[in-house]
Each structure stands twice: as structure tokens, then as C-alpha cells.
């Protein structure tokens, strides 16, 4: 089940309404194992709503979201609690505005992400009040894992500083490192490039490219434009006003006129006179 390209996430007919507003309308797509799947669309297209449904923050009234983990039955995400989706199904997300534990140190942020392991390793907390050896081992493993990801994301020099005091770019990186510490099967990044400058975006692209080689990790990348997507994504789904309008490789998307229409708001049927590169 670990081969590249086997289906990992199946989203079928996902619909989410807020009162009269249909934020996501009958969206279906597939994310495949060890690939980077990108959800692209302009502001308000429904990308974040899809992500919130996937991670259990919203309860979609219609639709099925199956995560194939290699067990005999897939996880049905629409029926699971938020923390179960993260802990059992391994769908870990970041947020468009980083949500760090601001008053805790960078290291502690990464340790909290391994809470489930630590609790299990400590045989539940009350027993470990007197520092039993197996709790110490679990704690050491957690710090080692944190250390590994601090090094990978070039954060080791700020490990003991408060997370809230880091620069914006470092906070973004820390949030991804924290998500990696939670051992995701599917890592969902909500507009990781938002608010970063050109150099920082280049760095982010390098890190994402490096993550692709990670063992059994698949990525769902939400982005407003194609610039970051085209170099890292294997597969792109374009959303516009809650509807999936395109689905294909980055090259196919670049060649499609529907995407350009979505970005420059041309009504269907009208001629496009602008350059295709607006969206790309």
C-alpha cells in the first residue's frame, strides 16, 4: 500500500453551507499517496472550507471523505472528532495565520504535538509522577524527534525561545515542523506562502520539495496562485466559488482557460483577451 500514486484521500460530493451561502458545492477530488496535491483558487473559493471539513472543524451536511490508511477499512473523516482525525487518521493541518502556543518555547511546541505518544509512553500521566524509566524514554524519544525536525527546518538555534517572539517566517516554519512532529499521513498546509517575501517563498519551496521524499507522507497544499504550486505539486485541483472547475497536472491547469476565467472573473462564453499568465 505504500506505492506512489495509490489513492490516499477520496473526497466525494462534499458540500458545505453556511445559512444560504454555499461555500463548497459538490466538490470531489482525490489525493494520492506520496504526492503533493494542490487546492488552488482565488480568495473565497472554498479552499479553507474544504480543509476545515477534512479536519473536522466543520461538519459537512453532504459528502464523503475517506482516508485510506492501509487498514482494511478506510477512515470516514466526516464521522470523526477533530482530535481523532489528527491522532488516528493522521491528517494534520497548519493554519493560514499560524496558531502557535505563543507563550511556550519552540521546543515545547514540538513536544505538545507528540502528546499522544507521550501519554501512551508514560502509561498515563499520574503513574509517571515519579519519573519512571519508560516515561523518561518516551520523553527522550519526543525530544529527539523534535530535535530532528528543528534541524530539518533550521530552527535549532531558537529552540528555547518563546514561539510568539519569532519572526513571521520562522513562525510559519515552526508550524510546519510542529505538524511534522505529529507524524502526519496527510499534511495539509493552508496557504503556507501567505505573507512571506520572495526569498522566504524560495526557502519554503525547497523545504516542501525535501518533504516530498519523506517516508509515506502526502501533502495537501492550499494556495491562491499557481506560482508556488507549479514547481512542487503533482496534481492540482482548482476551486472557484465553491466548485471544482479543473483537475489535472500543473501543465494541464496552465493550459486551461477556465482557470484564467476564474481569476479575472470573465463570465463563461465571453472572450478572454488578457494573457494566460495572470493566473500562473
Amino acid at each position: 500500500m505504500k506505492e506512489i500514486g495509490a489513492p490516499l484521500l477520496d473526497v466525494e460530493h462534499l458540500t458545505m453551507r453556511f445559512g444560504g451561502l454555499v461555500a463548497v458545492n459538490d466538490v470531489s477530488f482525490q489525493a494520492r499517496r506520496r504526492e503533493v496535491t494542490a487546492l488552488v483558487g482565488p480568495n473565497g473559493a472554498g479552499k479553507s472550507t474544504v480543509l476545515n471539513c477534512l479536519t473536522g472543524f466543520y461538519r459537512p451536511p453532504v459528502g464523503r471523505m475517506q482516508l485510506h490508511s492501509g487498514r482494511s477499512t478506510p477512515f470516514l473523516l466526516e464521522r470523526m472528532e477533530t482530535f481523532h482525525i489528527a491522532r488516528e487518521a493522521g491528517v494534520i493541518r497548519t493554519f493560514r495565520n499560524p496558531r502557535l502556543f505563543a507563550g511556550m518555547s519552540v521546543l515545547e511546541n514540538l513536544i505538545v504535538a507528540q502528546q499522544a505518544d507521550l501519554m501512551r509512553g508514560s502509561g498515563l500521566s499520574p503513574v509517571s509522577l515519579i519519573a519512571l524509566p519508560h516515561y523518561r524514554r518516551a520523553a527522550r524519544r519526543a525530544v529527539d524527534r523534535a530535535r530532528y525536525w528543528l534541524d530539518r527546518f533550521d530552527l535549532a538555534h531558537v529552540a528555547d525561545r518563546a514561539a510568539g517572539g519569532l519572526s513571521y517566517a520562522l513562525q510559519r516554519r515552526l508550524e510546519i515542523a510542529r505538524a511534522m512532529c505529529a507524524r502526519p499521513r496527510l499534511l495539509c498546509l493552508d496557504e503556507p506562502a501567505a505573507g512571506l517575501n520572495t526569498a522566504e517563498i524560495l526557502q519554503l519551496k525547497r523545504m516542501l520539495a525535501a518533504l516530498r521524499g519523506e517516508d509515506d507522507l502526502s501533502i495537501l497544499l492550499l494556495a491562491q496562485n499557481m506560482s508556488i504550486v507549479s514547481s512542487v505539486a503533482d496534481h492540482v485541483v482548482v476551486l472557484d466559488r465553491g466548485v471544482a472547475i479543473e483537475d489535472g497536472t500543473p501543465e494541464q491547469i496552465r493550459a486551461s482557460s477556465a482557470v484564467t476565467r476564474a481569476y479575472i472573473s470573465v463570465p463563461p462564453g465571453a472572450d478572454i483577451v488578457t494573457s494566460m499568465d495572470i493566473a500562473c
Binding site: 479536519t55 473536522g56 472543524f57 477533530t82 482530535f83 481523532h84 489528527a86 491522532r87 494534520i92 493541518r93 493554519f95 496558531r99 502557535l100 502556543f101 505563543a102 507563550g103 511556550m104 515545547e108 513536544i111 505538545v112 504535538a113 502528546q115 499522544a116 507521550l118 501519554m119 508514560s122 500521566s125 509517571s128 509522577l129 516515561y135 510542529r178 505538524a179 505529529a182
Partner: peptide, 27 residues
Amino acid sequence: RIGRLPLGRAWDALREDEIACRSLGLD
């Protein structure tokens, strides 16, 4: 002592950001 254990850290994290806690699989 419990403040230095996973449970105590989870209390701190909960106070800092509950949504982030849930997204990381904390009950």
C-alpha cells in the same frame, strides 16, 4: 511535578490555543 509532565504541558497549550491543540490530536 504534573506541570512538567505531558498533562501539565497540555493544560498550558490548551490555554494558549485550543484550536491548535485539537488540530494536533489532543483530546
